[in-house]
Computed example of a mutant assay.
Amino acid sequence: MTDFKVPDSFYESLKSTYSKAVESGDLVFTPTSTIYTNVDDVSYVYSVIPTLKQKPQGIPKPSEEEQEEEQEDSSAPFDPFDPPSPPLLVLPDYANNYAVVLNKFAVVPYHFILITKDKKPQSAPLEPTDLHAAYSLLRATNKQSGIRHVGFFNCGANSGASIDHRHIQFIEFPNPKSSDGAVYEPWPDVIVKPHSTTYKNGQKPISAHHAPFFSHFLAPIDTSTKEDELADHLSFRYSTLLSRVLTSLRHSSLPPRSPISYNLVFTEEWMLAVPRTAPDFIDAEADIKIGVNAVGAIGLILAKGDDELEYIKKKGPVAILQGVSLESQKREEDVDYDY
């Protein structure tokens, strides 16, 4: 039986490994400034990253051996997780089939990633053990740090995924309040709250029905679920969301054979799935291209400098998110597992 217990020293190891990697140059951290705002009763935090347009500096050059290997197999896409870089490795062995590494290019401190030891495709659905391992890691990190974290999984070419090696990412939530008293509350917290104790397996996912918004599917997680029932519980909730994603994409106006793409975002209390139609928001006329990360769906949006920030403010965050996802729809004929 797989042991999903996270070492009690995990968070301390995470911080120590991070500090050493930054000092050695193996990890490049780009500081950001944050702006809290509220649009149509939804909280947003804009992170402004002035240097994101520039190529990161201080990246170690590949060794001669690595360059030779790259030349020998130049057709193979680079996989930074096979094997993971030793200076970025936090847990080399977790739950038998996984490891935990740091994000090499971080804009949030302690951004860490759960990876499969064996290379599995990022475009395939998550397995029960993936969900169990990720949730246990998130819960342990929250407990050990006293800081709330969020996990996310990018699936498919339109989701923003850049590495085809199964991985689930984790970052800290922004502080609930900014220095000037502005508040950030992820909108799924508000939507889930009335359903947290009444939602049952088999029910349709929850959605925020106010408009304008984008297509999304949300399910509460029962935090009292016993350890030996956790994989089944998470899998049922995930499969319910995934069936809705597939149905939405099938009924969309996307070209035939478009890649199945979605973002999965989760906390201890809920799981959110957002169908994706494009990895970037593009405004050709304004010469704007904005990469939208999974956590953009819960209001955490990156801006590459002040010009891009002003564009996002003027256009509105919902328009940016609608530009990479499906329009919110209410379809009476939809039924669960209709895919």
Rank of each mutant, 00 (worst) to 15 (best):
Q54P: 04
A95G: 04
F152S: 15
L88Q: 08
Y36V: 08
S258W: 04
T2V: 08
L102W: 08
D40K: 14
Q54W: 08
K204I: 06
S74M: 08
K193G: 08
L230M: 09
G160F: 10
F81P: 04
V22K: 00
S258N: 07
G305S: 05
F4C: 00
E268P: 04
N158C: 02
L242D: 15
N38G: 02
P84I: 12
S328D: 01
S85G: 03
P186H: 00
D93Y: 04
A134C: 14
I171S: 14
P62R: 10
F152G: 09
D338A: 04
L241P: 06
K15T: 10
L218R: 14
I221E: 04
S74F: 14
V245D: 00
L102H: 13
F214P: 09
D287C: 03
V45I: 12
S196L: 09
F78E: 15
E172K: 12
I147L: 06
S13K: 11
P317Q: 02
E127S: 14
L309W: 01
T2C: 11
D164G: 06
T277W: 04
S162H: 06
V324K: 05
T267G: 00
D82F: 07
Y18R: 05
E229V: 11
S16D: 14
Y11R: 03
E285T: 13
L246H: 10
L27S: 13
E69H: 14
P83H: 13
N175I: 10
G151P: 01
E23I: 00
E308A: 09
H167C: 05
V324F: 01
H251L: 09
L27I: 13
P86C: 01
V318C: 02
V42F: 14
T30A: 08
Y94W: 13
E69W: 07
H111G: 11
I163M: 11
I59L: 12
P255D: 13
E69I: 15
K120V: 09
A284R: 09
P188G: 15
T32V: 08
R244C: 03
E332A: 12
F10H: 02
Q322C: 09
P176R: 11
T2P: 11
A124Q: 12
D232H: 04
D164W: 06
I171F: 04
V107P: 12
V292S: 07
L89T: 12
R237M: 10
F170K: 00
D41T: 09
P186M: 12
D180F: 10
K226F: 15
Q57C: 06
E285S: 15
A134W: 02
H209L: 15
T37N: 02
T32Q: 07
S243L: 01
F10R: 10
D287I: 01
Y184D: 12
T37R: 10
H216F: 13
I290C: 09
A273N: 08
P56N: 01
S24M: 12
E66G: 09
H132N: 06
E308F: 07
F153D: 00
R166G: 03
S248Q: 04
W270A: 11
V274D: 03
Q71F: 12
S261H: 04
S9T: 13
S162M: 06
V6H: 00
P7E: 07
E308Q: 15
N142S: 11
I298S: 15
V318Y: 00
K5L: 11
H209S: 05
Q67D: 00
S253E: 05
K200H: 06
L242Y: 14
N96W: 01
A106S: 09
T129V: 09
H165D: 14
I312T: 06
F29P: 01
A140V: 07
H209P: 08
